[in-house]
Amino acid sequence: MGGNPFRGAAYLLRGFSLLTEPGLRPFVIVPLLINISLFTGAIWLLTEQFGQWVDYWLSLIPDWLSFLDWLLWPLFALLVLVLVYFSFGLVANFIAAPFNGLLAEKVEERRRGAINSDSGWRAVLALVPRTLAREAAKLAYYLPRLLVLLLITLIPGVQLLAPLLWFLFGAWMMAIQYCDYPMDNNQVSFGRMRQLLKSRRLGALGFGGLVSAGLMVPVVNLLIMPAAVAGATLFWVEEYAASESAGTDISRR
């Protein structure tokens, strides 16, 4: 597997540093407000249901494994956190997709020059059909794999691996979710985008893994969406853009 997970994770940190740049602030506001609204709902839901959900997962463990409850409780607690925040993150990204596409465009302009000089509400409206179609493609990719993971989670014994599998899956989906914005802006197909991420899979997992972890940290999770869009755009520009523009093969570093 190509890429460097630490280099990948660093793109998210660099994305955070871009949020305060004067030229980007207007394009951060709407995704930020959407994130605040939805994650406030996620926090409320966890406050109301967290204990019941963890107890439900523990009830699926066979009696002969009950002596492992002390170990499984934190694992399933992590699983609940990942599921809730990941699910709310998907909804937030679907709603904010046009704004995220515009933010990715503006970040790339600052690094490579203009892609599209339009801005404002007219530009957002022009992005809506294309970005929602891409979000639908992501859901079509995500849902079958989600069902497989849910089935694995219900298999006795294999359940021990469920939290790790969920985290890896969440990391991969977060890489796909956010790297798709700059790649879509550059007419990279959804299938090609996945191939590019696979060519540097460890870097993608490092980036997506830190995004997934950030979703579970209060306050940080409110800023994670615009930071991840900005970081993923830097990832695209520095790891893929030049080779894709030249039509050359993407190889491991």
Rank of each mutant, 00 (worst) to 15 (best):
M1A: 14
N4G: 01
N4L: 00
R7Q: 14
Y11T: 05
L13Y: 08
L19N: 06
P22L: 03
L24F: 05
V28Y: 12
I34D: 12
I34F: 15
N35L: 04
A42M: 06
A42H: 05
E48S: 07
E48T: 04
Y56P: 01
P62A: 01
D63K: 07
L72W: 12
L72Q: 07
P74I: 11
L75A: 12
F76Y: 13
A77F: 09
L79R: 09
L81D: 05
S87M: 11
S87I: 09
G89N: 08
V91P: 01
V91N: 02
A92W: 00
I95F: 15
A96N: 01
F99Q: 11
F99M: 11
N100I: 07
L102D: 15
A104K: 09
K106M: 09
G113V: 00
D118Q: 13
W121S: 03
V124Y: 05
L127M: 13
L127R: 15
L127D: 05
V128I: 12
P129R: 12
A133Y: 03
L139E: 00
A140T: 02
P144G: 06
V148W: 07
P156E: 05
P156S: 01
V158F: 08
V158Q: 02
W172E: 14
M173A: 05
I176V: 15
Y178P: 03
P182E: 04
N185P: 04
N186F: 01
Q187P: 00
R192C: 00
R192F: 00
M193N: 08
L205Q: 04
G206M: 00
A213W: 03
M216R: 04
V217F: 05
P218F: 06
L223I: 07
L223R: 04
M225S: 09
A227Q: 10
A227D: 01
A227K: 05
F235R: 07
Y240K: 14
A242G: 02
T248Y: 03
D249H: 10
S251F: 01
S251M: 07
R252V: 12
R252H: 11
